[in-house]
Amino acid sequence: MISKHKSAVYMDGKSLLEEKIKKKNRRKDYLGTYLFLTPALLLLFTFSFVPIIYVVYLSFHRVRLPDDPIFIGIGNYAQLMGDSVFWRSMGNTLIYTLGSMSLGLFAGLCVAVLLNRAFKGKRFFKVFYFLPSVTSDVVSAMIFLWIFDHNLGILNYLLPKVGLVEPPAWLLDPFWAMFILIFVGSWRGAAYNIPIFLAGLEGVPKSYYEAAEIDGANGWHKFWRITIPSIMPISVYCMVMSIIASFQVVAIVDVLTDGGPDNSTLVALKYVWQQSFQFNYVGYGATMSLFIFPFLLVMTWLNLKLSKRSG
């Protein structure tokens, strides 16, 4: 079917489709468009925005389940401004997010480029590279617990054998604890990103490379001039998803450090979780999550804007 129209593909018909649309009745056209959108958006918005509206409602109330909410105006918001632990947790989350996002994207892209080369047994490697994202985050974190634990872990058993006599108590040291969280997060993140980048790489039309070769471009040139721009939309996806996923990290922290030592790995959502469920301040928890929300929205929007410009 595609080859049937191949001669037309190169036609300089920039927006023939748009022109065709113009001829049609616009209103009727939108109706058709909304048919594409309605089923998905109806389900998605019902089960996302109805709860979000409720979360907004909760944020203006003192809520101690199972009692009825008591309206307290902007009380929760005022409390939030002065809550140093929350801001600390936001800072920690930011560090974690930047760390695990950049490491996860970089590693993911490198491995995808590697896998995009022709060699035997590629499929085997591909499947196993996906492993870290297959298992739930709780179980993955448990695995690393048995590696990094300072009393029972295998790392501190092996290190003295190779001459490092006093290895640190990894998860009890503020620096190493955060480092390990970032490592585990980007380990999972990279595995998640690899197939996406790979799909993007596979998607770059081979004729582009061939055309570039005729123009005498070398490998590096081809990568920067063709590969990167071609996979830009999909990279934006990876970036945004990494930010969102990293911002919502809880399980890894719960299993490995429990927010310690001295709150140095307390991430925002863990704090929100603690306040809303452990302490039953559901209203305050709602307020905090509403604060994380615009933060993510701005980051996402910036990402989309930047990618548009560079594209």
């Binding site: 300072h150 009393n151 029972l152 108590a169 009890l172 604890a177 719960d254 450090t257």
Partner: peptide, 13 residues
């Protein structure tokens, strides 16, 4: 005595 682990669950050590 060893330092206790960081996790909330302390029963294994």
């Amino acid at each position: 005595g060893p330092l206790p682990p960081a996790q909330a669950r302390q029963s294994d050590h």
